[in-house]
Design a binder for these strands. Structure first.
Ligand SMILES: [Mn+2]
Ligand SMILES: [Mn+2]
Ligand SMILES: [Zn+2]
Ligand SMILES: [Zn+2]
Lengths: 139, 139
DNA sequence: AAAATAATTGCAACTAAGTTGCATTTTTGT
DNA sequence: ACAAAAATGCAACTTAGTTGCAATTATTTT
């Protein structure tokens, strides 16, 4: 299976997050951990060995976000993309670059911008930086 | 009508952009110009005096984006939000703040961040900064 | 000004992402 | 092994957006 190497890491993460350890949850988390970029529900499904009902996948992702082990990195088109929360600070993770030609997304680790200074009266809880352009393959 | 004061400005913008000047286009652009924040198709419809078919609204927005007089500022939930391109540089406009409590969006004009330095081989064409948190009414 | 041409609009039907209610199955604790 | 609680699956639904095509409106040509 695609997320094979991440299977035991996933098991530990679920336990630590206080989430029941079920097959579908292990499978989804393994896929996310094995991916080098945020994935949509569709992409997750494609990487699963045994099919999991889409409602279940959405509920698993919601539970992961609730437990803070995963977060919505961005939405592209009309789909949300999810990634594990490691590499990510409380207020922002790294910028995400999406190629306008091939559609591929890359995590720009280490390119994090400073935080916007909030206007008077506002409290900023999350900051998200999205980039669009051409990737090396498409330039 | 809501966008009344913007009606003649809209007329000029269409002419300058080389777009045919039709009633639906004038109406949609007037609404966008009168708004102080990006609007979804739904919000645009609600502010129109005479109803315009939704397909037409989407096509008008696509034409405006193509002509660069409007751009997609961000997507929230599963809907895209559009705003006129004034106040906006070629690569990025200002950050957009959305309140997690009331859902309102505010343009943080004057709070623009520096551009991410592209990783080797990448060409960045657009940068977008999204903020989430609590607005003054909801703190 | 009328006709021809090109662009825009509207309608119906469709797609894709995500959600809700409820019955069934799986986990967990005893 | 057994009961209670939680998670899963299915069907049906909602919402945002898209596509094909016919009808309308704007522009150009005669
Ligand atoms: Mn990432
Ligand atoms: Mn804005
Ligand atoms: Zn590319
Ligand atoms: Zn608010």
């Amino acid at each position: 299976m695609s997320g094979e190497g991440q299977y035991y890491a996933a098991k530990e993460m679920l336990a630590e997050a206080g989430l029941h350890c079920t097959e579908p949850r292990l499978a989804v988390l393994s896929v996310l951990l094995a991916a080098e970029r945020p994935l949509s529900k569709k992409q997750i499904s494609e990487r699963l060995d045994e099919r999991i009902n889409k409602v279940t996948i959405y509920r698993i992702l919601a539970a992961f976000c609730e437990a803070q082990i995963v977060h919505k990195a961005f939405t592209q088109g009309r789909a949300a993309y999810y990634e594990p929360g490691h590499n990510c600070g409380a207020v922002q993770c790294h910028p995400h670059f999406t190629c306008t030609s091939c559609g591929d997304t890359h995590c720009f680790l280490g390119k994090t911008l400073p935080l916007v200074k909030a206007e008077a009266g506002f409290v900023i809880q999350r900051q998200q930086v999205r980039l669009e352009g051409l990737c090396p393959d498409c330039v």
